[in-house]
Design a protein around this nucleic acid. Structure first.
Length: 615
DNA sequence: CCGAACATATTTTTT
DNA sequence: ATATGTTCGG
């Protein structure tokens, strides 16, 4: 059970929570209580400083992070720990109705602070402005389709569409968007793409930020915004793009109570134009910024922190551990990826006791402390590298879950369902009509007819009826689940959010090992962590920004709270080419006394009597 | 529409 | 010495 968030904030955390009167920047290393400071500060603002929740805006990068913050705020207000009130809670009890369980979870409840992603906030901000014509947002897959169409139009090979789409998105991380430095073809595709969005009145995800910024650059709008939200908190600030940074600047003045929190050492999204330089820029652009460093990690043992900061350039080493187990970082060398995967699987089996899955405990388990599978994670640089691990776990019947599941809305049938849903909601009608199978005009009359017939009925019924034209199995449990959610949910909830929740629901909540990319692991914590495929060319990835690769490795190491295994193979086939691999230079940069090299026993061959397999 | 030849290759979120 | 998706000739 997580600790009550009132209890035992350390002095630096407390200072961050209580800071008043101007901009605040919190530099929070791994496991130093970043989310706790954020949620405690919101609670403090509301309960102690008596700030009305509606005046508070907290911004995150993912819906998951936003949900987690809301969950923790509501939990905090529902069940204040009676004995722990370091923030004058006893003398200033929680005002009735300021925060309560169901209300706080609802994002736009009148008594809850606004907790949203940059994009979510941007769209609702645009909707709140009287003179803005709201366009329909399209997702990345539709952006890809338009880019493909542009390639077709210009006679460019479709194989390059992905690259062009990435270039366009990169360009639109800046305000104003610029294709400077991109190749000629990409510029042509960009022109077509922008023209398409204009013609059909669409916004892509990047436009939401750019448009909100464009509006907020107006002095009058900025003034109004600052009056509405005098208290701003932004999470993971090392991940902001140039446009998001400009948005931040427009949102607040040097006298605003704006807090940004982040860790420059965990900046790993440079490929999408994020940069830790904006943390530095913030302190310069808001000269009165108070800087607070959270230096005590409640997660990582000192040895892991030392190992992690040793790979950083410049060295980051100002973190200290709250506890020290003395456990060293363990490295293991393998002949090939198959051997590596097999060893990881068998070690997991040994640590987990091998009882919950049908495999015999070979008696090598030490002690009686078997770990839960959910305490274990295997991290890797690229999805491909995780597949070998998945196979090995499968073979032993060890349950696992992968973090990067495909977007549910990429499923062809759900996509068509989405298009009809959007048409019924009168969003981007022409765009979607043209993308349904068959003749757009037929679809138009069809949808109008069914809508008329079912006038007054629930939209999910109209949808279900229309699905009949698509050869979609109406009995499909996913479809049914989504239709139910549409029926009970509020009017214009984005279908992607519904689908995401539905997909999460279908994921069995069984105990499982986590298989994650290093990127996906950021923000998570596991007692036992394996980092696989630690070879030069993989981590650091060949041709990538070395500094960022260092930070990525740093993120990986600092996920572990008890044991950490770093593995590599001497041979690996990458893009079909077998490569003699050298172990990652980052391993060599870890001080020798923090490392322990494990020798694996050669795998005993299972000898099957040949005679028996004859029949 | 099918098959051979060919090109391409991280990381990922956002209504 | 791969897996996937695209192109192009039939």
């Amino acid at each position: 059970m997580p600790q009550d968030i009132y209890s035992s904030l350390n002095p630096a955390q407390l200072e961050a929570v209580r800071h008043e009167g101007g901009p605040l920047m919190v530099i929070a290393g791994p496991g130093t209580g970043k989310t706790r400071v954020l949620t405690s500060r919101i609670a403090y603002l509301i309960t102690v400083r008596r700030i009305h929740p509606e005046k508070i805006l907290a911004i995150t990068f993912t819906n998951q992070a936003a949900a987690e913050i809301l969950r923790r705020i509501s939990k905090f207000s529902c069940s204040p720990h009676p004995d722990s009130a370091p923030l004058d809670m006893k003398t200033q009890p929680l005002a009735e109705g300021h925060l309560h369980d169901k209300g706080a979870v609802r994002q736009h409840h009148h008594n809850a602070p606004t907790v949203a992603t940059f994009h979510g906030w941007a769209l609702s901000y645009l909707k709140s402005l009287p003179d803005v014509h709201i366009r329909a947002p399209i997702d990345q897959e539709d952006a890809m389709e338009i880019v493909r169409e542009a390639c077709h139009h210009h006679g460019f090979p479709l194989g390059k569409a992905r690259r062009y789409q990435q270039a366009i998105s990169r360009a639109k991380q800046q305000f104003p968007a610029t294709m400077e430095g991109e190749e000629e073809e990409a510029r042509a595709v960009f022109a077509y793409y922008q023209d398409y969005l204009e013609r059909f009145k669409l916004w892509d995800f990047d436009d939401l930020i750019l448009e909100a910024l464009r509006m907020l650059k107006d002095d009058e709008n900025a003034k109004m915004f600052r009056r509405k939200y005098p208290f701003i908190l932004i999470d993971e600030f090392q991940d902001v793009s140039p446009a998001q940074y400009q948005l931040t600047r427009a949102m607040a003045s040097n006298h605003s109570e704006i807090m940004v929190i982040g860790d420059p050492n965990q900046a790993i999204y440079g490929f999408r134009m994020a940069s830790p330089r904006f943390l530095k820029a913030f302190a310069q652009d808001f000269p009165d910024t108070r800087r607070i460093y959270l230096n005590v990690s409640y997660r990582c043992p000192q040895i892991f922190l030392d190992a992690a900061s040793a790979v950083l350039e410049p060295k980051g080493g100002h973190l200290s551990a709250s506890t020290d187990t003395g456990a060293k970082v363990q490295t293991i060398c393998f002949k090939d990826p198959v051997g590596e995967a097999r060893w990881i699987a068998s070690t997991i089996e040994r640590l987990a006791g091998g009882m919950s899955f049908d495999s015999i405990n070979d008696g090598t388990a030490q002690g009686t402390e078997f770990r839960s599978l959910s305490d274990l994670a295997v991290l890797f640089r690229a999805k491909r590298l995780g597949e070998e691990i998945a196979r090995a776990l499968d073979r032993r019947g060890i349950p696992f879950q992968e973090a990067s599941r495909p977007d549910p809305l990429s499923r062809e049938d759900l996509r068509m369902l989405w298009r009809i849903y959007e048409i019924l909601g009168n969003r981007a009608v022409e765009h979607h009509l043209a993308r349904l199978p068959g003749d757009p005009a037929t679809w138009k009359t069809r949808i109008e007819k069914v809508s008329r017939e079912y006038k007054g009925a629930d939209r999910s019924e109209v949808l279900e009826r229309l699905l009949a034209f698509l050869e979609i199995d109406p009995g499909d449990p996913t479809i049914q689940g989504i239709l139910d959610k549409i029926a009970e949910g509020p009017e214009d909830l984005p279908l992607s959010l519904i689908c995401q929740k539905e997909a999460d629901l279908l994921m069995t909540k069984i105990e499982a090992v986590s298989l994650l990319s290093l990127h996906a692991s950021k923000g998570l914590e596991f007692p036992i962590v394996f980092i696989a495929g630690c070879e030069d060319g993989i981590i650091p990835w060949h041709g990538s920004d070395l500094e960022e690769e260092r930070r990525l490795f740093y993120v990986g190491i600092t996920r572990a709270s008890e044991r950490l295994f770093i593995t590599y193979a001497q041979k690996r086939t990458i893009f079909g080419k077998p490569v003699r691999a050298k172990r990652s230079r980052f391993i060599d940069e870890i001080p020798a006394d923090r490392l322990e090299t494990i020798k694996t026993r050669p795998r005993p061959r299972r000898r099957r009597p040949r005679q028996k397999s004859l029949f």
